[in-house]
Simulated assay, not measured.
Amino acid sequence: MGVSNNITALFNFVGLLCSVPVIGAGIWLASKQDNECVRLARWPVIILGVLVMLVSLAGFVGAYWNKQGLLAAYLFCMAALIVLLLALLIFAFAVTRPDGSYPVPGRAYREYRLGGFSVWLRHYVADQWPQIRTCLSSSDVCQKFGRNQPYLTAYQFFRTDLTPLQSGCCKPPTVCGYGYVNPTMWNNPSNPMADVDCAIWSNDQSQLCYDCSSCEAGLLGNLRKEWRKANVALIIAAVVLIWVYIIGCSAFKNAQAQDLFRRYKQGFV
């Protein structure tokens, strides 16, 4: 095995390792409770990671055993996968760039408006909201929140940093002026006409604010937050894969040149 093939095999092994954060990001997204209900692009991320692993493995085998055809196929397929990964990153950044959250005076948590999120995300969730709403209400996202947070006073609750889903679905909007009883029970709104969600709120634990626009917005806030975290792993993987691919192309060309030169010399022997 020549020096160029050694280098190609080494960097293909690095590429193989790059598939781990991509697969890990997909699995992490799939493990999130809101993604259980939305299932937004989690399988494409996992599948993309598995394909990167398989193609890198093929490149490693081709370099180690000097299979030029396999190496050429590796370079072609890896180029396509890098393009797909970059397209996924651009799409994810585009649809998660707008932030629909806003601060609430006197509260540690933020609240969410649908109008602040990307049009694509809003339409995607709106089209599937009946199924998503049923999934959320049958989950324990709010019930568990109420059981595990034994706040004794309203002040303790107001000083808690809620997740977007908890803020949007498990309590009424602050502007309605509901009186705090516990995290998922509120009474006597002082301003019931301030927002359409004020009349939708229910102390029925199967209803709460699952039909509210704020719940849809909170779900989008959760998705945005999670995808922003997953993007960090995907960016690192993309940068390393591009670096590995460039070095792999250079090593492949060197190997081709060495093979051509060897054949040229043999022609004169």
Rank of each mutant, 00 (worst) to 15 (best):
Y64V: 02
C170H: 02
L152W: 04
K144T: 13
Y74N: 15
C77M: 15
Q131G: 05
P173E: 09
F145I: 06
A72Q: 08
S56D: 11
A154D: 10
G116V: 09
R113W: 06
K144M: 02
Q156E: 15
P103I: 01
L71S: 13
G116D: 10
W120P: 06
F158L: 11
S137G: 10
G69A: 06
L84T: 12
K144A: 12
S139E: 05
I132S: 06
L84H: 02
Y155V: 11
M78S: 05
L84K: 01
G69L: 00
N148T: 13
G168A: 11
R113M: 12
C135N: 07
Y180D: 12
G69S: 02
R110K: 13
G168W: 00
F145T: 09
L81H: 08
C135L: 04
R122C: 02
R110Q: 10
R159V: 04
Y109T: 12
A92K: 03
G115S: 14
Q131R: 10
G115L: 10
A154K: 08
P164W: 01
G168K: 06
P98A: 08
Q149Y: 03
C135G: 09
G179W: 01
I132Y: 03
G177P: 05
Y64L: 07
C170K: 04
Q68T: 15
K144G: 15
R133M: 13
C170W: 03
V141Y: 10
F158S: 12
G59D: 12
G69P: 01
